[in-house]
Design a protein around this nucleic acid. Structure first.
Lengths: 184, 184
DNA sequence: GACGGCATGTAAGTCGTTACATGATTTG
DNA sequence: CAAATCATGTAACGACTTACATGCCGTC
């Protein structure tokens, strides 16, 4: 059984309890999505593949006339999850348009660059707010998911602060230049 | 001219000066790669596409008998870069296996979880070191690329510290449990 | 003369998103 | 009864990596 990128999230979430594909997608969207997303186009085929390989077992659990399949880990699936957790790999891959823009901000005027930093800060403040909103609920559950949430909150706060400081220093620069080279 | 994911890096790097495709790949690999990568399979076709659209202009600049084409931004290309920089989008997409593992670390024993955190810290310390090594050279150039490097350094340091603190608190937990439930 | 770096390029294949299709249920 | 949500699934497309092919140059 080859692991694809969606395998560990599915196994990991099923380790927290039996879930439908729809449930898994929902959980990913409001927990791991900040560092690991997953789409229906990955989740449903993966559940079938995992069932075929015997790592999960699906059983029909309709709600009314609405068909529904919940999956649970088999012992083999639990072993596969633990093996993955023990493996030393810590790969990562980031695409961050905000910092790419900042990297090239020298192509803009100072005030436009400042605006760019402001938007970057607002993004992180926005994410910070979103994460803070779920914090109380997550605190109740505790454990590692809660720890990771705290990391996310701290990280966004740190970056937002960093942006704010950069904004101040860019403003200072601007003022200093205005004094040195007045009334242009 | 549609922007693909590789368009802004290519335009941005060419804004810093004329470069060959090979040069661009080299620069990406030791600067933006931490938040925006690019492969030859993207760069070379993109340079042709951009030349065709008139955003860059390539000219032959062989070194000896080794053919070589350097590209430079046209005024149209410079405008396209600035338009992109001014656009409000700040998309991002992160895949971080380390934090995904931490999220599900509840499936492990305490000492295995501790080992996982240790590896996560080491990864960030490793990246921190790599970035610190290029810092002196980047300082000379200054500008926004240097600012972004400092952000990367700060971020990795912050996360490494966070991991270290988590390690301490997991160790404390363990000791407390050993006292409460001795000689098992 | 072998190896590593310079230099350009393509083909095949994988990976992942998006949009769509279908249909039941709940809620305003 | 309309809209949102629950629920499952697939097809088409686009993004990206990898491996490979080619060949020159400098140096050990």
């Amino acid at each position: 059984m080859e692991f694809t990128s969606v395998t560990p999230v599915v196994l990991g979430i099923l380790h927290l309890g039996p879930r439908s594909g729809y449930d898994i997608k929902g959980m990913v969207d409001n927990s791991t999505r900040f560092f690991w997303g997953a789409s229906y186009g990955q989740i449903y085929p993966e559940l079938r593949r995992l069932a075929q390989a015997g790592l999960v077992k699906g059983e029909s659990a309709p709600r009314g006339a609405r068909r529904r399949t919940v999956y649970r880990l088999t012992p083999k699936g639990r072993r596969a999850l633990r093996d993955w957790l023990r493996s030393p790999s810590v790969d990562w891959d980031i695409k961050d348009e905000g910092f790419l823009k900042l990297f090239f901000a020298g192509a803009l005027d100072r005030d436009e660059a400042l605006e760019l930093v402001r938007r970057l800060r607002e993004r992180h403040e926005h994410d910070l707010l979103r994460l803070s909103e779920v914090e109380p609920r997550a605190k109740g559950h505790g454990g590692f998911p809660y720890l990771v949430l705290q990391w996310g909150i701290g990280l966004n706060r740190w970056t937002a602060d960093w942006c704010a400081q950069l904004e101040r220093s860019l403003l200072e620069d601007e003022e200093r230049t205005r004094h040195a080279e007045p009334a242009r």
